[in-house]
Design a binder for these strands. Structure first.
Length: 572
RNA sequence: CGGGGCGUGGCGCAGUGGUUUAGCGCGCAUGGUUCGGGACCAUGAGGUCGUGGGUUCAAAUCCCACCGCCCCGACCA
């Protein structure tokens, strides 16, 4: 492909809407173009990357006997009503009507369509297991699209679905996917970890996330420095450090204008673990609840949701005032026996604690949870902190920022039951199909490669997903000798099977080199009058910055060698 | 949805009531000199100043409403 005839528009300056590294690079290099918030055109360079990623995914999915199909991007309301998700999905779902006023959605995911297909096509245990997958556009009206292509409203996902007779079959399909995913991300040249994850509203089964460690990721991971425990902070558990204080009688203490943990600890000169934070949550049509957490920890709302159900939100100041008779910052559990009170298990047997006095400007000292509070249930409700100890090995755990690349989970029968996707087993008994669901965000792989592999000059694409193998830079393209040599070089490289982008624009060398660095093709070959005089062509490796020279007759062999070297660095 | 910021040629920005033709850099077009890490000269094209309303003799500039985009938070199968 010729550079000057292609739809490549590199930008010399950073577009102002881009703040994260991947977003800046993808825009500046002319890989993507934003059309609306969270909606992009994938320009030729970006699309070639996505195609290469798709191919890797296809190869690995086919290897585990996945069958590629394509489901519609649009589907009728009725299917979603059967599963209950027409309601559940709420505003995140794009909805539309046809001319006859029939309602549809733009699919945010495809479990319903899969279950619908299965109920029509799967009859017997003899038809199972199945793995169906597609690479397709998804639509989610995210409340806040961000970071370019990382969280967008229209994006490409490889989603697959396993159908099995029983739990053992599901386990097998799940493990096949886990292995396939490891290969996929490795082949794409990414650094990633596999962590325990929350399955959210999708189901209650086991769930793993494939996470890329990148600065400024949307997720936080808890990683044990000693053993292999890795978990999303949403589900991570750790051994908290216990703290004990002298058991003294309950007494009120004046703490004027001291509301936050920090203010109170500084004012009273006590450590944060001497405090009990009281968090009041309300929900529509449910009893309000009080959560107690030690002062040095934060509440993990995912854990709360799993314990008491979804829908709870922090209460408003007015609600707090009316129930506790005090402003936020001064509320506490003492004397609130009529409320349901859930306490973090680090507070079990806690005594001598300080907490809100349910009176403006006052806290109480000497709180003994067993004596003064009627706790409904103790449970792990805290967010793991850096430095907490691992439950498995006691090692120190740290918290890292990460980006979700893929998510696999065991769905079970949620959709097969609600949509009636059943099969007859060996005994002729009708049973619901056991499903699994597995996703990979294609753009996220592209963006993540930018985050992990680029440098201050531009992108550095892993050879496996680069839009081209070779960037051919032709200097002084109007000189006859250069014209002739470059024509020969193009013929040689193309014949050898390389994909080549040819930059023979009549602009200065610096512009071409800078554009090449920005676009990030792994191998750059330079043809110019100086080199030709010495019978030399330059081969420059984008990743390492090393430059080799080769004669025209050595060129292809040298490029093949470099390409293999780059592949080996990825695949080991 | 809460908080903050921004909308001016393709891109990045300046201009915050009054030199009647709205600037600058980059890019773009034409001609010429250059040519191994973002060259130079000359000429030129390109703008409903986000949209609508209002104030005023006069609005890119002041007021109101709306729209769009970005960031933080909430939310996120």
């Amino acid at each position: 492909m010729k550079f000057d005839k292609s739809l490549i528009a590199t930008l010399r300056e950073d577009p102002k809407e881009a703040e994260t590294k991947n977003h800046r690079l993808l825009l500046r290099g002319g890989f993507i173009r934003q059309v609306a918030s969270g909606i992009h055109t994938y320009l030729p360079l970006g699309w070639r990357i996505l195609l290469r990623i798709s191919n890797i995914i296809r190869e690995e999915m086919d290897r585990i006997d996945g069958q590629e199909l394509l489901m519609p991007a649009i589907s009728p309301k009725e299917l979603w009503e059967e599963s209950g998700r027409w309601q559940e999905y709420g505003e995140d779902m794009f909805r539309l009507k046809d001319r006859k006023d029939r309602e549809y959605c733009l699919c945010p995911t495809h479990e319903e369509i899969v279950a619908d297909t299965a109920r029509h096509k799967i009859r017997s245990y003899r038809d199972l297991p199945q793995i169906w997958y597609q690479i397709q556009t998804k639509f989610r009206d995210e409340p806040r699209p961000r970071s370019g292509v990382l969280r967008s409203r229209q994006f490409i996902m490889k989603d697959s679905y396993s159908l099995d007779c029983d739990q053992a079959g599901l386990d097998k399909s799940f493990n096949l996917h886990k292995q396939a995913y490891e290969k996929i991300f490795k082949r794409c040249g990414l650094d990633f970890v596999i962590v325990d994850a929350s399955s959210g509203l999708m189901g209650t089964g086991e769930s793993k996330e494939f996470m890329a460690l990148v600065a400024g990721g949307e997720d936080e991971l808890v990683i044990c420095q000693q053993c292999d425990y890795r978990a999303n902070i949403q589900v991570a558990e750790g051994k908290g450090l216990s703290a004990s204080f002298a058991d003294i009688p309950l007494e009120q203490i004046a703490t004027p204008e001291k509301r936050t943990v920090r203010e109170v600890t500084e004012f009273l000169n006590v450590p944060a673990q001497n405090l009990v934070k009281s968090l009041f949550f309300t929900a529509v049509k449910k009893d309000p609840i009080l959560i107690l957490i030690r002062g040095d920890y934060e509440v993990n709302e995912d854990k709360v949701a799993r314990l008491i159900g979804h829908g709870y939100e922090p209460a408003s100041a007015e609600e707090i005032k009316s129930v506790f008779g005090a402003e936020p910052g001064y509320i506490g559990p003492a004397g609130m026996g009529k409320l349901k009170i859930y306490a973090d298990d680090l507070l079990l047997d806690a005594q001598g604690m300080i907490t809100g006095g349910n009176r403006d400007g006052y806290h109480v000292r000497g709180l003994n949870l067993g004596r003064d509070v009627r706790v409904t249930e103790y449970a792990d409700l805290r967010k793991v902190r850096s430095g907490d100890r691992c439950l498995k090995c006691g090692g120190k755990m740290t918290i890292e920022s990460a980006l979700e690349l893929g998510h696999i989970f065991k769905l079970g029968t949620k959709y097969s039951i609600s949509l009636g996707a059943n099969f007859l087993d060996e005994k002729g008994i009708s049973k619901p199909i056991i499903m699994g669901s597995y996703g990979i965000g294609l753009e996220r792989i592209m963006a993540c490669a930018c985050e992990q592999k680029s440098d201050d000059r531009g992108a550095v694409w892993p050879i496996s997903i680069a839009p081209f193998d070779i960037h051919l830079t032709i200097l002084n393209p109007n000189e006859d000798i250069v014209k002739n040599t470059s024509a020969d070089v193009i013929r040689l490289l193309t014949k050898a099977g390389f994909s080549v982008i040819i930059d023979d624009r009549d602009v200065s060398a610096g512009i071409k080199f800078n554009d090449a660095d920005l676009i990030g093709i792994p191998i750059r070959v330079t043809v110019g009058p100086k080199g030709i005089k010495n019978n030399q062509l330059d081969i420059h490796i984008r990743e390492t910055g090393e430059t080799h020279s080769a004669t025209q007759s050595e060129l292809v062999a040298k490029c093949i060698e470099m390409r293999e070297l780059l592949y080996r660095r990825i695949n080991g």
